[in-house]
């Protein structure tokens, strides 16, 4: 008994036919991301809810003090937990499917392996005490593209999070409550953003492989229907400094190198937009907090 989502031939053909005529079923341009709505918790640092269209997830960052790994005494520990439950969709059954593992791997490569979080800044007492930052991704609603939304949510939550301030007395440390001393934001070295492109072959396999023309359709940020009917996908992770963090085209429809290069260059525009979105949202939130919690009274500097 399979819990996979079944799409009728009619729906499939309808989608491909409309793509052939140059429009998506939701009337979005091929290279546009869906509408994004963000919620940053006003009470808890590090909890965010992100929705891209109908795909919704919640992300939380927590920090605890622990002992570092023996072979890395100067670095903190950073883990990302991303488990998908059947709440998001019946497709993600209790047994871990390949799809789920791929999503977790790509987000891990994009955020953890690329050192977006400075692990050395998490060190408190070398070899004895370091911060352990844990990111929990809770997928709530699945409407395609968990990778991009997941990565975006992780970066937003990391920016939003502030760890408690600490003071060191010889060999013991004092962790100050957030109401006692202002908590400290994390040191984030760069902001990786993932973009998933989905490919559709409108002719047959042979013309795709043997043919000269690049006749494949390419969509950015596929929703559920588009994702189930795609012939291949490419995940490009870039940051604003024009650095490619990772590329994943795990098989799927072959595309020409020329088209591939064009896609990577075209992505920069969306990467810039999304990075700016994170930064402005965090800044807005900071200003709002400043006003509502009267931080001005806590400042010790004088107006010049």
């Amino acid at each position: 008994m399979s819990r996979s989502i079944e799409i009728s031939e009619n729906q499939r053909k309808f989608l491909l036919e409309s793509l052939k005529h140059g429009f998506r079923l939701t009337d979005r341009p091929f290279d546009h991301v869906r509408d994004i709505s963000l919620y940053l918790s006003p009470t808890e640092y590090g909890y965010v809810e992100v929705s891209w269209g109908k795909t919704k997830l919640a992300c939380r960052v927590t920090a605890t003090v622990t002992t570092p790994y023996e072979d890395r005494p100067f670095e903190g520990i950073f883990t990302i937990n991303s488990e998908i439950s059947t709440m998001a969709s019946m497709r993600f059954d209790t047994s871990r499917s390949n799809e789920e593992i791929l999503i977790a791997r790509i987000i891990e490569k994009a955020v953890r392996r690329s050192n977006s979080l400075d692990l050395e800044s998490l060190c408190i007492i070398a070899g004895e005490k370091v911060w352990e930052i844990t990111v929990d991704l809770n997928y709530l609603n699945y409407d395609g593209n968990f990778i991009d939304v997941g990565c975006f949510a992780v970066m937003l939550a990391l920016h939003h999070f502030k760890k408690p301030d600490i003071s060191i007395n010889g060999n013991s440390i004092v962790v100050h409550d957030i109401n006692e001393r202002q908590p400290v934001p994390l040191s984030i070295l760069h902001i990786p953003i993932c973009l998933t492109y989905s490919f559709y072959n409108l002719t047959d396999k042979e013309s795709n492989i043997k043919g000269e023309d690049a006749d494949e359709i390419c969509l950015l940020d596929a929703d559920l229907l588009e994702e189930l009917n795609r012939d291949g996908s490419l995940v490009i992770t870039l940051n604003k400094n024009r650095e490619l963090i990772q590329l994943s085209k795990n098989g799927g429809l072959p595309i020409s190198a020329q088209q591939f290069l064009e896609l990577t260059f075209k992505s920069m525009k969306t990467i810039d937009q999304l990075t700016d979105l994170i930064k402005t949202k965090i800044k807005e939130h900071e200003e709002l907090r400043y006003k509502t919690e009267n931080f001005k009274l806590l400042e010790a500097s004088a107006d010049r």
Partner: peptide, 29 residues
């Protein structure tokens, strides 16, 4: 794929400057 320049699979796991992608891709092809 074959003698063409069609890419069936692309995997990059570490940082690479975007502007250098073309030269690396060319030698790989």
């Amino acid at each position: 794929i074959g003698k063409s320049e069609k890419l069936a699979l692309v995997v990059l796991e570490d940082k690479l400057p975007l502007d250098r992608l073309e030269s690396v891709l060319a030698i790989a092809i």
